[in-house]
Each structure stands twice: as C-alpha cells, then as structure tokens.
Design a binder for these strands. Structure first.
Lengths: 310, 310
DNA sequence: AGAATTTACGCGGTCCGTAACCATG
DNA sequence: CATGGTTACGGACCGCGTAAATTCT
C-alpha cells in the first residue's frame, strides 16, 4: 500500500465516484486510478466499493472505514510538509479561513488587519459558507480554520477552541415602539413581524428553542443568512430585526435603534476549529492567539465576552 | 514523500540512529535508507537530523515533529490493513497485550480463558514490562493493549478505558500479631518491616503518599515488582506484605493471613489503553468487553469494583 | 585501521500512458 | 452510440543493490 492508493481512493469519493474525474484531478490517466483502486482492494482483501456493473457507486462499510483513515493519513502527510515550510519560511504561506458572513463582516476585520500587518507574506483566503459546509471544509483540510457558532465542537474529527460568547439584540427603525422600553420582553418581540437568521445559521437553533420554551411564537416574516440583508429589510420597514449584538454598528447603523437582548436568550459561543491532528504553522497558531487577544481588547463594546481556554 | 521515507525515519530512531541497523530491520541495504532520509530532508526542506560528521546523532526540533506525525501515519496505514483482515477473517489474527505481572497473573487468566474459547484462531501474546514500557509499547503500536494502573490515562496519544478499581491488603504468616485486629491501622503497619511493590509499579505512588500525609513512615525492607516475590519473602518471615487485594488467593495462600486495607488507602483504577486512532478489530473490541464483563461477574470476591464507562 | 556513511553506477521492477476492448444507459 | 471503465502492452523512470570512495573513531 502506498500513498497514491489512498490518494486515489479519497479523490474518487470527493469526485463523486467518477474514476475519470479523479484521474484528471490527480494529473494521471484513468487506467492508473483504476489500477490503484484495484490494488488497494486486493491488498486490503475486502470489497471497498459497491459496484453497478463496472461503475463504482458507493463505498461498502469497510470502504467507509478505510476512507476515514486514508483522509487522516493524507492530512498528516500534509502536516509533515507544513512543518518544513514552517521552519524554512517562517512567515510565508497561506491561511485559509472559512466562516459565516457575520464573522467575516463584523468580527474578523480587526483581527485580519493585525494579522496582515504582522505577516505580510501570508496570503489570506476568506471563504464563506453554511456552518455545515465550514465543518466539511475543515475536516477535509480544504481550509485551515472554520470559525462559527453552530455545528462545531461536537464533531469528533475537529478540535474546536471557544473564542468568545455573544448574544442578540433587536434593531428597528428609529422611533419604533419596541425601542421605547429599555428592557424588551419576549412578548413584545412577538408583537411585531421579525426578521432574523436562517435556520442552521448563527445561533438560530437556540433562538427558536427560547420561544418554544416560553410558549410564544414569533412572527418570522423573513429569514436571511446575512446580517446586512436583515438590516436592509428592517430599514424597509418590513419588521424588527433580531441579530447578533456584535453586528450592530453604532455609527453606520445610527438610523436604526437597538436594544440588547442578552437577558432573553442563552449566550452563544463562537469557536475556531481545525482538523484534529493538523499541524499548525506558527503563523496559524498566532492567528488563533491574535483572534482571542483582539476580542479581549475590544472589551464589551460589541456586547461580546472573551472565553478563556477550556 | 512516500511511506518508505517515513518508515526509514521511524526505524532509524527506533534503532538508535544507526542507519545500518535500520536498513537490516527494513530488509533493504544501507544506502537505500540513507537515500530515504536525505530525500525526506530535501522534500521537507528543513534539517531533521543533528549530525556529527556523517553520523546521525539526534533529531532537530523539526525532526521530532515529523517523527511524531510519521508514527501516526504508519499506525494508521496499519489500521487500514487491519480493517481488511477484520472483514475477511473475522476471528483470525493476533492480540498483543502488555501488562504488569500482577494483572497477568491474577486478573487476566479468566478473561483469557473466555477469549481463547471464543476466538481459538487468534494467537495471544502477553508481554510484561514496567508501566512506562507498557505505555511506550502501546503508543508505538508494538502491542495492541496496555493494561495497568499507573501512567496511563494522562498520555495524549493513548485512549484509556477504566476497567475496575482495587485496593490493598496486608498479608503475614499465620498468627502474626498484625492479623489479630480485624481493622488494621496505618500505625500498626509501621510497627513491622514491610514488603511491597517497587516504585513506579502497581499503585506504589498513592501508597507512599498516604503515609507521607499521615506523617508516618513505613519500614519498607524490600520492594519487588511482582506479587509472588513479595509473598515468598513474607513466607520467609522477612516482614508483612502489602499487596493488591486481588492478588491474595484464599486457597493457595491459605498459610498466609490477610486483612483488607481499603479503609486506609485510596482506590486505584486499572485501565486498558490503546493508541488513539487505532482501528480495533472486532475481536479486539470484544476483548475489552469481555474484560469488563468478567470483572463484573467475578463480583467483589477479590475486593475489586467494576467501573462503568466514563 | 576499521566501522559507518556517502557517492557512483547499472539492473530490474513497476508505474504510467497509449490503445484497444467491453458494458451500460 | 456515446460515456465511462477495464484489459493489454510497451517504454521510461526510479528505487534498490553492488561496489568503491570518504570520513571519523
């Protein structure tokens, strides 16, 4: 068994069980990949693939197991090479971050600024996606870090580091009746049409749970993945917005009124996660440190609380 | 980078930095290994070895990192092959256990009997060693399981499963004054010369701590790694023995008196550990289950308590 | 001087690419 | 009949083994 066999297996699966596409991806011809897969099955001595005629359709249970280990092996060989790059070109390389819109837009900018200043030779990539996609990308090591609130932390193949806790606020056009009382109640929120995040995003789970427990039902007229979209519709007068407190900008959103809601909802914990066993280059480790440190310095202006290490 | 490079690196280290011995171990000629190491260094692009002239002396820091990942990669490729064997020859293979003398002699026999009955085609190996050696063997995957009380559980590369808790007893030749009172005190134990386990073995750490805390100092005239040796010297009249309660056999040791001491010392937890990420074949998983189950059935006869899963 | 490692070189295996062949929708 | 996968075969590459050169104990 050689690494190329494992590479062929993993690429085959990632390419949706198309041998030809895997071959293209691997820069070899198709019969080569066929041979790898065949040899791998021979050496392991068990069927790995469910076949339909000559076509490969899916993995057997054994195949799933082998795939899992193969991914780990390949990730670790990458880590080995990363060690080298780390020692020779300390501060040269790339940092691939996958996160949600809210993080990318409201939390990361000051961190990124500091990082880019300290490591000008590191090329930065910020990918966006749904929490489920972020998890996937981190597991497959197609990004270095996934930063979000949902779906991390339970995954057995990820190491998740809690970074800060945040809560929600309500926003509404200036003069809106919900803004009168300094301390808003759940009942008051239910009196108006609500615009908030799409399910699966940014703490929407706990958000809904809170209403269910209280026996109240909010009138969610619109859901969006993205705080800026929510704000836009709130400005249009479509309803009141319930967003992450940290996404309210006192200057840019001066036309909107805001009331903190941390007394109504549970705190959410945003984490930074990476593939377990991944070798972190010094600048990657440093990014995590800078992230936590920046949060710590920005104090509670945005209503977020730093998390100490677990 | 190919697996052979990693194998050469790992073997080199295991052979004490002798390229020639590594070559023998790998069934290739020496220049081949030299080439692997050279190529590995080239590809990683960092010095991995500390050299003294042409001789390799030690690993650099980068080398240590690479070694760590290489070990994991190789362990996982082994896991992949194990998956195959598991699916084709369900109950054929080998089970390598490393443990201390006390476990091998007093706890494992009934487990082994059940296991051998159910899996006659699995060849069993029982290795013995100091707790530190057991940990090493498990980490390097040169055994499948390490079973002992000390040193496991904290190691980051091992997964340790608590199996049962035990405590100590005192043994002495029949009629010895320490046997008169049903409830022995620490002070009484200090009145006689004591024979017990060597430091680093079988709960000796907590044993000593207990005396230190009480301000008493036992008169340990002899330490042995092995309960049978202790018993022998107790029979010789050299002193009283403090051993694991489970190592006292009511029939074979009828000439020795015994008093339980669980009111004096903290309970010790014996664990079964294996390399994290290792693929457990079905019969290996079954061994753990049978181990725990056998303990559960043997009830408290030997003064040991089963542990539920953490 | 001898043990151990590196360098030099040639052979053999094997890995991949080309091309022809087969199955499936 | 086109798309996608397997079988067959040849050439190029390279990994290993032999043997000579080198260096440190």
């Amino acid at each position: 068994m050689e690494l190329r066999h494992l590479r062929s297996l993993v690429t085959l699966v990632d390419m949706g069980f198309s041998v030809s596409r895997a071959a293209v991806q691997l820069h070899v011809v198709q019969p080569a990949v066929s041979q790898h897969l065949r040899q791998l099955e021979d050496e392991i001595g068990a069927r790995l693939f469910v076949r339909q005629g000559r076509r490969l359709i899916a993995l057997t249970e054994a195949g799933e197991r082998v795939l899992e280990y193969s991914r780990q092996v390949l990730a670790q060989t990458n880590s080995i090479l990363a060690i080298g790059r780390d020692h020779t070109q300390q501060s040269r390389g790339e940092l691939r971050i996958a996160t949600t819109h809210t993080q990318a837009r409201y939390v990361l900018p000051p961190v990124i600024r500091r990082f880019a200043e300290k490591y000008p030779a590191v090329s930065l990539q910020i990918h966006q996606g749904t929490p489920a996609q972020l998890v996937d990308a981190a597991v497959h090591d197609s990004v270095d870090f996934a930063i979000c609130t949902e779906a991390l932390g339970e995954h057995p193949l990820l190491r998740a580091i809690p970074c800060y806790r945040w809560n929600r606020c309500v926003i509404a056009p200036g003069g809106h009746p919900v803004l009168i009382k300094p301390r808003v109640t759940l009942k008051q929120l239910c009196a108006y049409p609500v615009i908030t995040y799409v399910f699966g995003f940014t703490g929407r789970g706990h958000f809904s749970d809170t209403f269910v427990e209280s026996g109240l039902r909010p009138d969610v007229v619109l859901s969006a993945a993205d705080t800026d979209v929510i704000k836009t519709y709130v400005r249009e007068g479509l309803g009141i917005g319930i967003i992450a407190r940290l996404a309210y900008d006192a200057v840019l959103d001066a036309d909107l009124g805001m009331r903190d809601l941390h007394h109504l909802f549970p705190w959410e914990t945003t984490k930074i996660a990476y593939a377990r066993g991944k070798y972190l280059r010094t600048f990657q480790q440093d990014f995590i440190d800078m992230f936590q440190d920046t949060i710590r310095q920005s104090d509670t202006r945005g209503g977020l609380q730093p998390c100490s290490e677990p």
